[in-house]
């Protein structure tokens, strides 16, 4: 289709491109700043003032300190455990729930849908949840970070919408061949809804990777801490008057100067994996947010 552009429209077009370009820079710059700072020589960085257009000098000393720190390594492994085990269980449970709620002739479907959707808008809140975890004996265990969030209601509804779009014929022919519901779900529905499943996996995995609050209130044992909780101590607690032991122990044997780059290196180490993954799922994002999925 060919359209004639008036002068006003051409001006708008130019302004729009310039604005969005600036907007992109604003989105990108904070991360670039951290990246440049993490690669800088600590002494040069300490003297620098203002916007960073590139690393100041070049040094990997911060990364050496961070990657040799046993706490960070434990945290990293713990986070990997929570991400992998958590996400597998999340997707399994969510897929089963979505399959049940996407059946057409199920007498108890409506009450089940209401029961699920209601939890999006009302809940017991912080204190009863905390007491429940203690009561169930999950306090200070790895399970405390996995079991309470097994199903995110939103993801369940998104997945259900994806399942409902699968043509009935596929399931019926499988049923005639004698397949039971488990076979239909895992052999037919999940493979044909790959795009939706990919988005759900990403949502859950990123959720586990970035989670910190439950770890803070449910875990005492530092050996179980996920990376984000350690990051909080390194990045935030020491500047807002909290626990400084962690950041001090990080500096053992190194000049205090290294500390200026350590913050940035830990951010990069903790963030880069996620930033590498999401662009590959990007083409599926729209499936995860379609409006039809939201109305109960």
């Amino acid at each position: 289709m060919k359209r004639k552009f008036s002068l006003g429209e051409a001006a708008f077009d130019t302004a729009n491109h310039v604005f969005l370009l600036l907007f992109g820079l604003v989105c990108l710059y904070p991360m670039l700043h951290v990246l440049f700072a993490s690669l800088s020589a600590p002494s040069r960085l300490a003297q620098h003032s203002g916007i960073l257009w590139g690393p100041q000098g070049f040094s990997l000393v911060g990364y050496e300190v961070v990657l040799q720190n046993p706490n960070i390594l434990t945290g990293y492994l713990n986070t990997l455990f929570y991400v992998v085990v958590g996400t597998v269980l999340n997707v399994l449970m969510t897929a089963m729930g979505a399959y049940v709620l996407s059946r057409k002739n199920l007498m108890l479907k409506k009450p089940m849908v209401i029961m699920v959707v209601f939890t999006m808008y009302f809940g017991g809140g912080l204190i009863p949840n905390f007491l429940l975890i203690k009561e169930l004996g999950l306090y200070d265990t790895r399970l405390a970070l996995i079991v309470p969030g097994l199903i995110a209601t939103w993801n369940l509804i998104v997945m259900r919408t994806g399942f409902m779009a699968v043509p009935d014929g596929l399931e019926e022919s499988a049923k005639i061949d004698g397949a039971n519901d488990f076979t239909i779900l895992f052999r037919i529905i999940l493979p044909v809804t790959k795009a939706t499943v990919a988005v759900i996996v990403l949502f859950y995995a990123v959720g586990h990777w970035n989670a910190w609050f439950n770890a803070m209130i449910y875990l005492r044992d530092r050996e179980l801490y996920p990376l984000q909780l350690l990051l909080r101590e390194i990045l935030i607690a020491n500047s807002t008057g909290g626990n400084t032991i962690e950041s001090v122990s990080l500096m053992e044997g190194d000049q205090a100067l290294v500390y200026v780059v350590i913050k940035y290196c830990t951010i990069i180490v903790a963030t880069v994996p996620i930033l590498f993954i999401y662009p590959f799922c990007q083409k599926y994002f729209m499936k995860g947010v379609m409006l039809g999925s939201m109305k109960g």
Partner: peptide
């Protein structure tokens, strides 16, 4: 680029 900040953890955002 505009999606990127969404994937950065809250702890890191607040640290920044």
């Amino acid at each position: 680029i505009s999606y990127m900040p969404h994937f950065i953890s809250l702890v890191v955002i607040c640290g920044m």
